[in-house]
Design a protein around this nucleic acid. Structure first.
Lengths: 125, 125
DNA sequence: CTTGACATACGAATCACTTCGTAGTAATGT
DNA sequence: ACATTACTACGAAGTGATTCGTATGTCAAG
């Protein structure tokens, strides 16, 4: 069970989730667009992430290929669970309130959330 | 604008939100019930939190009295905003999905969440 | 006034995260 | 063959969070 990713690790995971398996150079190029970062910094982070089990790497090619070891949804669930405990006292209602009040939420998104609730109601009958 | 609290700080804030203004000893006693922690560790953390502006302290009595400088809801909103960005790609829908799939959610809680949505729909007309 | 209980202040160790430079090695072009 | 380029590995520094021991001060009881 990989540990909760740190902020820097999350940036890298986001790239891997978006692109699929990637080399360090590819990840670095994308991150460097938004933010100053040396190549070896990204490299080191990804090496550590491999040790932690957050990513897997394929060493068969000279440039190792990394991929997230858990899908985005899985990690999101972990993070949400952690938050629920540590910040929201276990109240999903309060977490949703936090999410909604964090910023303007469009009607369209509210409708999507409603649809989610429908599914969960059905499931819980 | 106080910074985002760390995990250890959040534990202390949770106690302060629950009890209202409290001395270090009171906070320590509650935390020590669940977890080994020396008195001076809690003291130091709370001193640092005061410097950061996460708590205010009243030094008029010999045992200083601390209170959270922001209400729980405010902090919850901050944390939700941060996570929304860093983990959920700005999608409130995905954050809610994460919360619901993190654990069993009761029918009662689902109903409460629905009520929240109603209020937000009205507001957004 | 001295002792004991209880408080704060503070220095220091430890740990994790982040950053980057340097070294070494394999591949590629001239 | 040699120089250049593209990798990985690794050590180490800087920062911030966390932990705790020790020093010191205050107060009340005897």
């Amino acid at each position: 069970m990989p540990p909760k990713p740190t902020d820097a690790e999350l940036e890298i995971l986001t790239v891997l989730w978006g692109r699929g398996p990637s080399t360090v150079r590819e990840v670095h190029e994308i991150i460097a667009r938004r933010k100053a970062a040396q190549y070896t910094t990204i490299l080191k982070l990804m090496q550590i992430m491999a040790v932690k089990g957050l990513v897997r790497r394929d060493e068969s090619a000279r440039a190792h290929v990394y991929q997230a070891s858990r899908p985005r949804e899985w990690t999101e669930r972990q993070v949400a669970r952690d938050l629920l405990e540590k910040v929201f006292g276990g109240s999903a209602r309060n977490l949703v309130l936090g999410a909604l009040s964090a910023r303007k939420t469009s009607r369209k998104e509210l409708a999507e959330i409603r649809k989610l609730l429908d599914e969960y109601e059905k499931e819980a009958q």
